[in-house]
Amino acid sequence: MAKIVTLGELMLRLSPEGNDRFIQSDHFRVIPGGGEANVAISLANYGHDADFVTKLPKHEIGQLALNAMRRYGVGTSHIVRGGERVGIYYAETGASMRPSKVIYDRAHSAIAEARPEEFDFDEIFEGAQWFHWSGITPAISDNAADIVKAACEAAKRHGVTVSVDLNFRKKLWTSEKAISIMRPLMQYVDVCIGNEEDAMLCLGFKPDADIEGGKTDAAGYHKIFEQMAKTFGFKYVVSTLRESYSATHNGWKALIYNGEEFYESRHYDIEPIIDRVGGGDSFAGGLIHGLLTKPTQGEALEFAVAASALKHTINGDFNLVSKEEVESLAAGNANGRVQR
Rank of each mutant, 00 (worst) to 15 (best):
C192Q: 03
G62I: 02
Y221A: 04
R337M: 14
G220W: 04
I256R: 05
W133V: 04
R169P: 05
D165S: 04
I274Q: 08
N19P: 10
W173R: 00
K58I: 12
A247Q: 08
W130E: 00
A300V: 05
V237A: 12
S15C: 10
L241W: 06
T174N: 08
I288G: 00
E324I: 05
G73E: 11
D146W: 03
E261V: 11
D317C: 12
R13A: 02
A334W: 14
S163F: 03
E324H: 09
D217G: 13
I88G: 06
L185N: 03
D26F: 14
I314W: 07
R106I: 07
Y236N: 07
E325R: 07
H222P: 10
A139K: 01
N335S: 15
N335A: 14
C192R: 01
I193W: 03
L66E: 13
P295T: 13
E196Q: 13
G251Q: 09
A306N: 05
E17Y: 14
L56S: 02
L66C: 09
R81P: 06
T313R: 13
A107N: 13
F205K: 07
N167P: 10
I88Q: 09
M97G: 11
N38E: 01
E226H: 07
R21E: 14
R106D: 09
G194D: 01
N333F: 15
A300N: 07
G83Y: 00
G279I: 01
D275K: 09
W133A: 03
F131T: 04
I256W: 07
G34A: 03
E117H: 13
K171H: 13
F283Q: 00
Y72V: 12
W173D: 06
H312A: 04
T174K: 03
I179W: 10
I61W: 13
A107W: 10
G62Y: 05
H158K: 15
M11H: 02
D120H: 06
V102N: 08
D120G: 02
G332W: 06
G336K: 00
V189L: 06
F303S: 08
D317F: 07
D20P: 08
V74S: 01
N19A: 14
G34E: 02
D49N: 13
K177W: 14
I181Q: 08
A331M: 09
V5D: 00
T240N: 06
I211H: 10
H289F: 11
V5I: 15
A304G: 04
